[in-house]
């Protein structure tokens, strides 16, 4: 049980986002939703302490973006200073272990850079904490157990109980972030924290190009009436075409995957 005198601490990991049309730095949409989720925990808890953490460099190019988070009502943002090209996982893990919060909230994927979506997983592995992705709501927090709603495709929700401390990641299904206000954003402080940077060697060799929209399989609807078109639009994705492989060797599995990729025209 948590002693009542200690505030419930939530750390929200925030990154510098990038507007899809103009490429301007901004608060990242998913991270801002994560912060919104954390700030909303005040409904359940008497004493809530939300800490926003950004690992990276602070410069004039991303100042407005980082202050965008402060504008949501934070007095300060912890800035874990890291050189360019550093792997932020070790530094974040160190910071989080040094003063462990009960909950860590992240977005599901960065809007620029590597954008692999692996940060929450890598952190969860390092810290040994459970991870829940696609969280849309924290329903209650009792005796070190949080009851969560997780978003599943097609608007479905799944209720989960997770033992704290835990990492939650949120995506576009979570409630939209509140407006960032200019005044608090300007007054809020970026509190720097020096942390040794571990340069990601592999990262330096990468070439970056703007992301393109993922190709989508064309869905040919042969409906002739409005009713059929509606049914087709509302229909659940049907499986059926797949194949469940169990108790197979890795070679067999790889072969099946290879065959599928060839069929789909991904590999030629």
């Amino acid at each position: 049980m948590q002693p009542d005198s200690r505030p419930f601490e939530v750390a929200v990991l925030v990154s510098v986002g990038r507007h899809p049309l103009t490429g301007r730095a901004r608060r990242a949409d998913h991270d801002a939703r994560g912060l919104e989720l954390a700030l909303g925990l005040g409904r359940h808890l008497d004493r809530l302490q939300v800490r926003a953490v950004h690992a990276g460099r602070h410069d004039s190019g991303n100042d407005t973006a980082l202050r965008g988070y402060l504008g949501m009502g934070l007095a300060e943002l912890t800035l874990v200073e890291q050189p360019d090209g550093a792997d932020v996982i070790p530094a974040l893990a160190t910071v989080l272990t040094r003063s462990p919060p009960q909950l860590v909230v992240t977005g599901s994927r960065a809007e620029c850079g590597e954008g692999s979506g692996l940060v929450p997983y890598a952190l969860a592995e390092r810290l040994g904490w459970p991870l829940v992705n696609g969280v849309v709501e924290v329903e209650s927090i009792d005796n070190g157990v949080a009851t969560l709603l997780q978003a599943l495709p097609r608007g479905q929700r799944r209720r989960l109980a997770v033992r704290l401390p835990a990492i939650l990641s949120v995506d576009g299904a979570a409630p939209a972030a509140r407006q960032s206000a200019f005044g608090p954003a300007q007054r809020g402080e970026l509190a720097p924290l020096q942390e040794a940077g571990v340069i990601d060697e592999a990262f330096a060799e990468w070439t970056f190009s703007p992301a393109r929209r993922r190709p989508k399989r064309l869905k040919i609807i042969k409906a002739t009436s409005a009713r059929e078109r509606f049914k087709a639009a509302a229909a659940k994705a049907e499986g059926g075409g797949g194949q469940v492989l169990s108790n197979v060797t890795s070679e067999q599995g790889a072969e099946a995957v290879y065959k599928l990729l060839e069929e789909e025209g991904v590999l030629r």
Binding site: L21, T22, R24, R26, M72, Q179, A181, F182
Partner: peptide, 30 residues
């Protein structure tokens, strides 16, 4: 209300975000 509370009602926040990011209220590609 806007600069301190961050409380512009309805589409207000979205329009302001668009103006910041795309220089037009509709969020169109500049």
């Amino acid at each position: 209300l806007t600069l301190e509370h961050g409380n512009t009602p309805n589409k207000g926040a979205e329009v302001l975000d668009n103006l910041i990011a795309t220089d037009n209220p509709g969020g169109f590609d500049p």
